[in-house]
Nucleic acid binder design. Sequence first.
DNA 1: GTGAAAGCGCTAACAG
DNA 2: CTGTTAGCGCTTTCAC
Lengths: 330, 330
Amino acid sequence: MATIKDVAKLSGISRSTVSRVINNHPYVNDEKRSRVKQAMKELGYFPNSSAQRLRGSKTRTIAVLISRIVNPFFSGLVDAMDEVATESGYQLILCNTRGSRERELKYLDLLKTKQVDGVILASVENNWEDIKPYLGYGPIVSCNEYTAQTDIPSFKINHYEATFQAIIHFIKNGRKKIAFCCGDEPIGSDLGVDREKGFFQALSEHDLLFQDEWYFKNVSSVEDGRGVLKRIEKMDDRPDAIFTGSDEVAMGIIAQSQLSSIIVPQDLSVIGFDDQQMSGVLKPGLTTIKQPIKQMGRETMTYMLQILNKQKELAGTEKVLQYKFIKRDT
Amino acid sequence: MATIKDVAKLSGISRSTVSRVINNHPYVNDEKRSRVKQAMKELGYFPNSSAQRLRGSKTRTIAVLISRIVNPFFSGLVDAMDEVATESGYQLILCNTRGSRERELKYLDLLKTKQVDGVILASVENNWEDIKPYLGYGPIVSCNEYTAQTDIPSFKINHYEATFQAIIHFIKNGRKKIAFCCGDEPIGSDLGVDREKGFFQALSEHDLLFQDEWYFKNVSSVEDGRGVLKRIEKMDDRPDAIFTGSDEVAMGIIAQSQLSSIIVPQDLSVIGFDDQQMSGVLKPGLTTIKQPIKQMGRETMTYMLQILNKQKELAGTEKVLQYKFIKRDT
DNA sequence: GTGAAAGCGCTAACAG
DNA sequence: CTGTTAGCGCTTTCAC
């Protein structure tokens, strides 16, 4: 493969000038510039990016950590981030942690090995103490997930408030026996904690009773949702409403209810989370909490790029975006 | 940041030996090995990957070109590819072309600049003649899309046959006025061409008539699907069945039909493509063609890695995977 | 087993 | 404006 040396030789011009042409430096004689370009074309020359990175120590690459790209929430986030990254000539390395602590740390190593300029954390598996040391190697910005312990920028909605509002909605509609679902145990993030707080706060403000069996852990897929409904079916004291924490789980519950005696929403009212595309298409329409995914992704990436360009600091900026409660049939 | 030199100095051992330790070479004295490791830990040393790549000219990174990550078909594909890539210590660069020809070529440049070891083409915007030259810089494998002109490995289903079968299904159910939808104009791929061929072949074998206005171009989103139904509503001679080419479009049609006088499937039978998660959850259940997304993604990536390890050749292997016709309510 | 030395391809002082 | 030169951090002969 042709190198800068070959171009220099063929055009009879020094390597430094060739380099200047590559990098669009201003002070180059027009005639030489075109001779160089000619030679580059003839040789099919392209600059080796590893060499450029080694010299310049910039990669124009960002690692985006998510738990799973098939989750529409994450693919939407990544899509939004990708939009702004590409606009500025940056690339994304897709880091599907699949919920693994080690894999997450391995991806964070990209910062140490200088394969990326920065890391965006859109899911978190490890404790903050384990992640913190990586800050010494480059900027980390968090999106969606967050902890109070953190001193890095974060972009998110208020999950406490959103959940609280959802439960109040149930209560206003006369529901008294409200169930709660959550995904994985919250390790390094307060997101799950805040949802739970909002839930119980609403309950206690209205003196509602809660049964332990109405608390569903580790549910996050459509299949999990189906399982939840099956368990409800077997209960003596069934809930009359359920906060699912995810549209997938909600859809699973609804789908399974159609195979059971439980009718949604008459017997069981359901609230999802995210407002995924299909939530409005489904019949009955899913009531849900819409996160500003696109905005969240774009703002996070924009901020990251500003940090890399020294326009912003890696300080504890915290941006709370507005969610939207979407009332449909369930 | 610490370099190999620092480690060498601190441990009092030469750079070459340090390098050997990094790369787990066998011939290193145990005592020195641990002294080196100790020094690395003390300094927080990590090898600079740009330097390693420059020396070794391998990046262990694959570019995956897709049109849009939010499309569940593509995110499923990427997820499957990512699984096998990670298993072998490879990374993925996400290349969302968003349907842009230039962006596609820009991503192909990653091969020229040696930022990736190979490229997987899961969507195609350019003509094959424009892509072919890139083969000189590294392996390209295609997945889902394909052309007869191509001499690269490809993994796909038989779209001609799948479409043909779908239309025959309509016909067997007594439908006589069948509409057709397609996405973007097929430029560098025969996928769309084959679907169209299958469609018209089935029609002509059963002497069915076709109206030009039943041919819908450039429809690919839920919103597009809604638009299709609105147009059908206004027709004097309405189709009684529609092949949508995508579950999204199908869902849009169904959702919109619920706001109209047209009843699915009585008045209009619908067949999707892909069998996305929600297709079975929806009511009415969507009849669709299920592609083996996971298998397709895994096999493609596996083959790519084998090429990179010289276990396979970059020849015109063509693997046709099995799709599945899923009959539901529509 | 181990170290010295060359060089991967590029950029950026520096001197002219 | 342009060329010379010195590395960026690493791996890999080659000789000991």
